[in-house]
């Protein structure tokens, strides 16, 4: 039961981002996931600074050129580094970031089940 749950969570987790949408929606979605570098913690979508406005145009142009969402992220990461991406990718730097909460969740569950529910007097 527990295994099934875990598997389910992961399935959901990795399927979640596959939203199909037209270019306009895709553009909004991408710009929401980009950090406006000259702002204080705003996304490109939320900002109307010169930089953000240009970046919106760039994303639109790239989409019209047939770039995929992933390719646009890669392109911008190459230009500006990982700082621009709001969705940190899973790599050696971010294993802890992504997996520690889930690990804590499992540990917490184990403690609850072990010490409160399945102990017999």
């Amino acid at each position: 039961m527990n295994y099934l749950k875990v598997i389910f969570f992961f399935l959901v987790l990795f399927n979640f981002n596959e939203l199909k949408a037209d270019n306009e929606n895709l553009k909004n979605q991408i710009t929401k996931n980009l950090r406006c570098l000259i702002c204080q913690g705003q996304s490109v979508y939320d900002s109307d600074s010169e930089f953000a406005n240009s970046l919106k145009v760039v994303v639109e142009e790239k989409l019209n050129d047939g770039f995929s969402e992933e390719q646009i992220y890669l392109f911008l990461k190459d230009k500006y580094g990982e700082w621009i991406l709001y969705d940190p990718e899973l790599n050696i730097n971010t294993y802890i970031l992504w997996l520690l909460p889930i690990l804590l969740f499992l540990i917490g569950g184990a403690i609850i089940f072990k010490s409160f529910i399945f102990t017999k007097k």
Binding site: L13, F16, N17, K32, N33, R35, S43, E82, W83, I84, L85, Y86, D87, P88, N93, T94, L97, W98, P101, I102
Partner: peptide
């Protein structure tokens, strides 16, 4: 790195 809305939503 930046940790933004997609991270929180996914988790």
């Amino acid at each position: 790195i930046s940790v933004g809305p997609p991270f929180y939503h996914k988790l």
